[in-house]
Amino acid sequence: MSIQHFRVALIPFFAAFCLPVFAHPETLVKVKDAEDQLGARVGYIELDLNSGKILESFRPEERFPMMSTFKVLLCGAVLSRVDAGQEQLGRRIHYSQNDLVEYSPVTEKHLTDGMTVRELCSAAITMSDNTAANLLLTTIGGPKELTAFLHNMGDHVTRLDRWEPELNEAIPNDERDTTMPAAMATTLRKLLTGELLTLASRQQLIDWMEADKVAGPLLRSALPAGWFIADKSGAGERGSRGIIAALGPDGKPSRIVVIYTTGSQATMDERNRQIAEIGASLIKHW
């Protein structure tokens, strides 16, 4: 067993022997301040990774656009098919120029040779490549099948209805392509620590998230040296922004954090800054 596999296998073990965790309302004060600064709703939840206990939450059962955070769930569904012998990570998928959609920095470079399922998941999570996500959605049967996968996990809230990039439209009061912070946090925890996926697939999923290259201005910008984070960000229309993450000190994750916002007129930089400040408060009061 590799060191990384050992780390993920012992996530519940280490967490069980940690000192009790206590909620700190100071972080919620910052979440509410972010709402004021952005002029928009902000949803927040913080779960203990081992027990699933909610440590703090704000608007945990209000719907927010998922945006690209759905790509972690998508690759979880792909990995479940791999575990069941219905898919192979090494299978190569070929596609054409007509398949390319807006923001496809990886797939646009491989029109000639195609990409493997493993490479597509890596591109979808680490670079948020939209064509990679659409190609992977095709392998599982489309958005409705991802929703069905989530329902089978016990998540009857999260739903995907459309493809990239239309799913980022974020129309107010439109339930399409949305989740709730509580539902997303619980589902992410199941994917990373539950028995739904094999140990190898859980490790692969967290490795992809740990290698995320496009979430630097968010929670990662607030992390002290030595902290662990595996995350996936999302951005959408109407001032929408979000991030889902597993993080913790001492090089291992111990909490799940989900943050979503929508309806702001603020710039992307300002949305990023507010999420980073929430992260800084979380870490300060850990």
Rank of each mutant, 00 (worst) to 15 (best):
M1Q: 01
S2M: 12
F6W: 08
V8G: 08
A9E: 05
F14A: 11
A15T: 15
A15D: 02
F17S: 08
C18F: 06
L19T: 15
L19V: 15
F22H: 15
A23G: 13
H24S: 12
P25I: 09
E26L: 15
T27Q: 06
L28A: 10
V29P: 04
V31D: 01
V31I: 15
V42G: 01
G43A: 08
Y44S: 01
L47M: 12
D48I: 04
N50E: 14
L55W: 07
S57L: 09
F64H: 01
M67W: 01
M67K: 01
T69G: 02
C75E: 01
C75D: 02
S80D: 10
R81Q: 10
D83R: 03
Q86P: 05
R92K: 12
R92V: 14
I93E: 05
H94R: 13
H94W: 13
Q97A: 13
Q97H: 14
V101E: 10
E102S: 13
E102L: 12
S104V: 04
V106G: 06
T107V: 08
E108L: 09
E108N: 10
T112C: 12
T116C: 07
T116G: 04
V117C: 04
S122A: 14
I125A: 04
I125K: 00
M127C: 09
M127G: 06
M127I: 09
A133D: 00
N134E: 02
N134F: 03
L135V: 10
L136A: 06
L136D: 00
L137D: 01
I140F: 06
E145K: 13
T147E: 09
F149Y: 10
L150N: 05
M153R: 07
G154T: 05
G154V: 04
G154R: 07
R159I: 06
W163C: 11
P165F: 05
P165A: 07
L167K: 02
N168I: 05
I171Y: 14
N173Q: 15
N173A: 14
D174W: 02
E175Y: 13
R176F: 09
A183V: 13
A183C: 08
T186Q: 13
R189D: 08
T193W: 10
L197Y: 05
L199V: 15
A200Q: 15
R202H: 08
L205I: 09
E210Y: 10
D212K: 04
A215T: 06
L219H: 03
W227A: 02
F228W: 05
I229D: 01
D231L: 04
K232L: 00
S233V: 02
S233A: 08
R238P: 09
G239W: 01
R241N: 04
I243H: 02
I243G: 01
I244C: 09
I244K: 00
A245E: 00
A246T: 12
P253C: 11
S254Y: 09
R255W: 01
I256N: 01
V258N: 02
G263K: 06
S264I: 04
Q265T: 12
D269N: 12
E270M: 13
N272P: 01
R273Y: 12
I278G: 00
I278M: 09
S281Q: 14
